[in-house]
């Protein structure tokens, strides 16, 4: 590598200065917005965009997924809501939010009474250990939620 020969020509002080600059550049990159992780506040604003002013009530929704998945790149989950799924009383949508992902939105599922059962399974990406939220919007306008904490040892968003 040509870098090594260049370094030999530098004094010890120059090397230390260069290393310092490198660290500054690196920390500057880490602060750049596109590298930032989502925070629970980002998830809150997304949640507000999805469900409006409704206040989510704990319960009715169940989010089943491994507490410590093998790999964050593909984490299996099943979300279901206790509902008769009739014309008068059914689940309209389920939203999945991952608070610690670069973008907190995972998926929105829109049901109809023809769904028969408010349940769906899939696989999501998780970048780091975090809380995953499931929000269920009912046909009467109420919103139910559940939160599940997941520990991720191998992140799943590449890079």
């Amino acid at each position: 590598m040509s870098d090594t020969t260049d370094l030999k020509a530098l004094s010890r002080r120059q090397v230390i200065l260069a290393a310092g600059c490198g660290a500054l550049v690196a920390s500057g990159l880490a602060l750049a917005p596109r590298a930032a992780r989502a925070t629970p506040a980002d998830a809150d604003s997304l949640q507000a965009a999805l469900i409006g002013d409704a206040k989510p009530i704990d319960g009715k929704v169940s989010l089943r997924m491994p507490k410590v998945p093998d790999n964050g790149a593909s984490v299996p989950f099943t979300v279901s809501v206790d509902s008769p799924m009739t014309e008068e009383d059914h689940v309209k949508s389920i939203h999945i939010l991952a608070e610690g992902n670069p973008a907190p939105a995972v998926a929105s599922y829109h049901f109809t009474p023809a769904s028969g059962r408010a349940e769906v399974s899939g696989r999501m990406r998780l970048a780091q250990s975090q809380n995953v939220r499931a929000l269920a919007m009912m046909s009467d306008g109420s919103v139910y939620q559940t939160v599940q904490n997941v520990t991720v040892t191998i992140g799943g968003c590449g890079g």
């Binding site: 999945i96 599922y109 769904s115 696989r123």
Partner: peptide, 24 residues
């Protein structure tokens, strides 16, 4: 011909997306 189940996916969905759902 009638839409019965619609989903919006975001980058948080894993590659080679698998999904299981229900219909009456």
């Amino acid at each position: 011909g009638k839409e019965v189940f619609v989903t919006d996916w975001y980058p948080g969905i894993a590659a080679n997306p698998y999904m299981a759902f229900f219909l009456r």
